[in-house]
Design a protein around this nucleic acid. Structure first.
Length: 568
DNA sequence: ATAGGGTTAG
């Protein structure tokens, strides 16, 4: 049915409904307009349905868009394009590829709008071969000179590290067709590849720059640790927007300058800029690294005062921040308040329980997470295995490590092996630990050998200790600690000739005895450094008496570490 | 009569 054949009333109704669709801000409103559309058969009209799709995309209702699309008898190219776009924007890129196939089957010819969305979808699923086919389809359908398609292609190849392919697309664009988006995308491709010289050259050559251009360049410099360039560019942006501020705050955080990140956030709000959800999650995460509960609370208060929606980003950042700042209770309170919880939220809460010593609760959270159809990834298992390690849950840990590989098809990383080796070693299962290290496909690191070595020390197993130390000395030839441990072990078993051999080896390599490891604590603004068995602090007698007293009180109340209830 | 792209986050 074309426009001219429609009854005038039908046309008016369609136009009115399109306007109403544009005005929808909630799913409820959208559903009520849809009700009218179905009643009046406008749900078969591709023009009106196109706007319906766009609104679904802004509201994030992919399910509704897809189910209504499947009811349309003869979707036109506009509607197919809209459906593909919604799928990509709502992060359902595989569905977009399926819709493209069904479009071809239905004999509807794709065009430039189809390809720009589709290429973006291929980038999201990192479908290199499929993306290349789609890019081939672009040539067949004569869309290769469309600036939107070309921009998407530059971005697509860059996401695979194919900077040469990106350059090729960019260079083949006639200069007159390159707009600021195309230039910025190419600049971003260089920045992603870490080639800041080319990025800077492009920046200088560009006929026009906007905010995104500046932000991309700043981010590129900061990711390579070049904060000076990032800072001076930031100061020169003609008009900073919220993304510029957030980018610079993130730059400080990436370079571990968390206090500077907080200072810049305060400067920004003092100048009257309103942070958005991205700014807030960035700054909350900076607070987590600072470990300052006071600043963390202050930012959380800001979140509540300004009525930010507790989305999955802000939510997971807050859960992590409270746990890292030492308040597991507050972390749990925030977690239970979250309306929507994704993998990151669950990972944050599981890690919090794990590092605070609540292994059983962490495992319970894992089952709860699975019952809500969120599936663990490698990060989840680092926390879970770490929890087993701290609680000494050997069989549980062994079972979970197997499940991780068999049920979740997660390839164990060095971090996972680290937890398992530490768990076995502490339990005295030195042979199991060594067997696991031998089965690793990647190189064991110093942490892994160090855990096994510590187990050997407790068990007085000189034979395996020697294997660990040989490996450690190879990995860290200048760390005197490894040699010293070996010396102490041989000395303890009266093997003085071995002791002499190692002393000679150290001397030959020019390794000094070195100083013991230190830790420090901030008390009332003063930083006190201390080492194990260190009694140099003027109040050390008092401190030891206090610790003994605490120990005695715990013993009398029958409290063991890991069993302290926190009532949730 | 309808539409599309680049920059910031855990």
């Amino acid at each position: 049915m074309t426009l001219l054949h429609r009854h005038p009333d039908f046309l008016t109704r369609t136009l009115v409904l399109v306007e109403r669709l544009k005005g929808c801000t909630t799913l409820k409103e959208l559903q009520s307009v849809l009700g009218f559309m179905i009643k009046t058969s406008v749900d078969q009209d591709c023009f009106a349905m196109n706007q319906f799709m766009t609104t679904c995309s802004t509201l994030g209702c992919w399910d509704l868009a897809a189910s209504m699309f499947s009811q349309v008898q003869n979707p036109d190219v506009f509607l197919y394009n809209a459906m593909i776009r919604v799928s990509v924007q709502c992060s359902y890129p595989l569905q977009a590829l399926e819709q493209y196939k069904s479009m071809l089957r239905a004999g509807v010819m794709p065009e430039s709008h189809t390809f720009s969305s589709l290429i973006k979808g291929c980038r999201l699923v990192q479908a290199l071969r499929y993306g290349k086919c789609v890019h081939g389809g672009v040539w067949k359908n004569g869309c290769k000179r469309d600036v939107f398609v070309q921009t998407a292609a530059i971005d697509f190849y860059a996401s695979f590290g194919g900077i040469v392919e990106s350059e090729k697309v960019f260079d083949e664009m006639p200069v007159s067709e390159r707009d600021v988006f195309a230039w910025t995308t190419m600049l971003s491709a260089y920045a992603q590849a870490g080639d800041m010289a080319s990025a800077q050259r492009l920046f200088d050559e560009m006929p026009e720059r906007n905010n995104a251009t500046w932000n991309t360049l700043i981010d590129g410099y900061a990711r390579l640790g070049n904060l000076e360039s990032a800072q001076s560019l930031f100061e020169n942006i003609p008009d900073k927007n919220i993304i510029s501020w957030t980018t610079m705050i993130a730059c400080y955080a990436q370079n571990k300058l968390f206090r500077e990140a907080v200072t810049l956030f305060r400067d920004m709000t003092n100048l009257g800029f309103s942070p958005d959800e991205v700014t807030m999650s960035t700054i909350i995460s900076a607070c987590a690294h600072l470990g300052s509960l006071d600043i963390g609370r202050e930012i959380h208060y800001y979140v509540m005062q300004n009525r930010f929606h507790l989305d999955v980003y802000i939510g997971s950042a807050l859960v992590d921040m409270y746990s890292k700042c030492g308040s597991l209770e507050k972390s749990l309170v925030v977690f239970y308040k979250l309306q929507e919880k994704n993998l990151f939220c669950w990972n944050s809460v599981i890690d919090g329980l794990a590092v605070h010593g609540f292994a059983r609760k962490a495992l319970m959270m894992l089952s709860k997470m699975e019952s809500e159809k969120i599936y663990p990834n490698w990060v989840t298992f680092v926390s879970i295995l770490n929890a087993c390690n701290h609680a000494g849950l050997v069989e549980e840990g062994r079972r979970l490590f197997m499940r991780m590989k068999k049920d979740y098809l997660i390839v164990p990383r060095v971090e996972h092996y680290g937890c398992m080796v530490a768990l076995f070693s502490k339990a005295g299962l030195l042979e199991d630990a060594l067997g696991l290290i031998r089965s690793m496909e990647s190189e064991p690191n110093a942490f892994i050998w160090g855990s096994l070595l510590d187990g050997c020390r407790v068990q007085k197993n000189l034979e395996i200790a020697r294997i660990c130390l040989d490996a450690l000395i190879l990995l860290e030839p200048n760390n005197s600690g490894h040699y010293m441990l070996l010396i102490n072990m041989y000395a303890a078993s009266n093997q003085w000739d071995e002791v002499t051999k190692i002393r000679r080896m150290m001397k030959g390599r020019g390794i000094e005895k070195g100083c013991p490891g230190h830790s420090w604590i901030e008390i009332g603004g003063d930083i006190c450094q201390f080492a194990a068995s260190d009694r140099s602090h003027p109040a050390s007698d008092k401190i030891c008496m206090f610790l003994n007293d605490l120990d005695e009180q715990m013993r009398l109340s029958n409290i063991k570490p890991h069993e302290i209830s926190i009532g949730f």
